[in-house]
């Protein structure tokens, strides 16, 4: 066997394995989807609201128009998601809604750069780093977390440069299908989940490996005696 090849493969794989970190759910917690919505999107008929997902390695078009219901489309978990407001007069559908799949990396980078330039000039950032799931204690009831944002504009008819950043001034926690929604996953509750949310599971996580180890030792001892 080629040891060098094995070591090289291992090192390459480690880079990818590190991405899997985001999937690991700490003991005693579970992942709950978040639905982000812009509540007062209908108040600004002169603007089009789009979400943009900056997704590592993605070749697909990552700009999506937010419908009148104001719900921000979900993106793959590794994407950084932004919401922009664009004056209808500045809306460039040929650029934003270009669904060409770009196999070539340089094309992909060029398109992303073009989008960034466009957003810098013709759009205004409303929200950034939106999250679409959140860890909550295992004991929480099921359901989605509804996160509502109120957009504020000084002068809706003016160019987008006058837009102000959206604020999550109103965050609601709505139950789904009659179940109680989990507690609001704000930053403080999340950190406390990490610190204190293990409960009895913590001991199971220690007990089970210990039992397995005992069985393994017994097997090895019995084998040696034979």
């Amino acid at each position: 066997m080629n040891y060098l090849g094995l070591v090289f493969t291992f090192l390459i794989a480690i880079f990818f394995v590190s991405y899997a970190c985001a999937d690991l759910i700490p003991p005693g917690t579970k992942s709950i989807p978040i639905v982000n919505s812009l509540d007062n999107i209908r108040d600004f008929p002169n603007f089009t609201f789009v979400s943009y997902g900056d997704c590592p390695g993605s070749m697909e078009n990552s700009v999506k128009v937010i419908d009148e219901d104001g719900v921000v489309p979900t993106y793959y978990k590794f994407c950084k998601v932004y919401v922009y407001a664009i004056a209808n007069s500045n809306f460039d559908a040929s650029l934003l809604l270009n669904d060409t799949t770009r196999i070539n990396t340089s094309e992909q980078i060029a398109y992303k750069q073009e989008l960034k330039n466009y957003f810098n000039i013709s759009a205004k950032l409303i929200l950034s780093d939106l999250e679409f799931s959140q860890n909550a204690p295992e004991t929480s009831a099921g359901g989605n977390i509804q996160q509502h944002f109120m957009i504020s504009l000084n002068t809706p008819s003016s160019p987008p440069s006058n837009l102000q950043n959206g604020t999550n001034s109103q965050i609601k926690n709505e139950p789904q299908n009659g179940t109680n929604a989990p507690s609001l996953p704000n930053t403080s509750s999340l950190s406390s989940t990490k610190k204190t949310g293990y409960g009895p599971l913590f001991y199971w996580y220690l007990l089970l490996p210990f039992l397995a180890l005992i069985v393994i030792v017994i097997i090895l001892v019995l084998r040696k005696r034979k």
Partner: peptide, 27 residues
């Protein structure tokens, strides 16, 4: 089953406690 019963809970536990050390835990 035995190997997984030993390694999986410990990996989950340490990944939960030290998320930044994922690579070390995996190794």
């Amino acid at each position: 089953f035995l190997i997984n019963l030993l390694s999986w809970p410990l990996a989950q536990l340490f990944n939960g406690l030290f998320p930044a050390c994922f690579l070390v835990v995996e190794l």
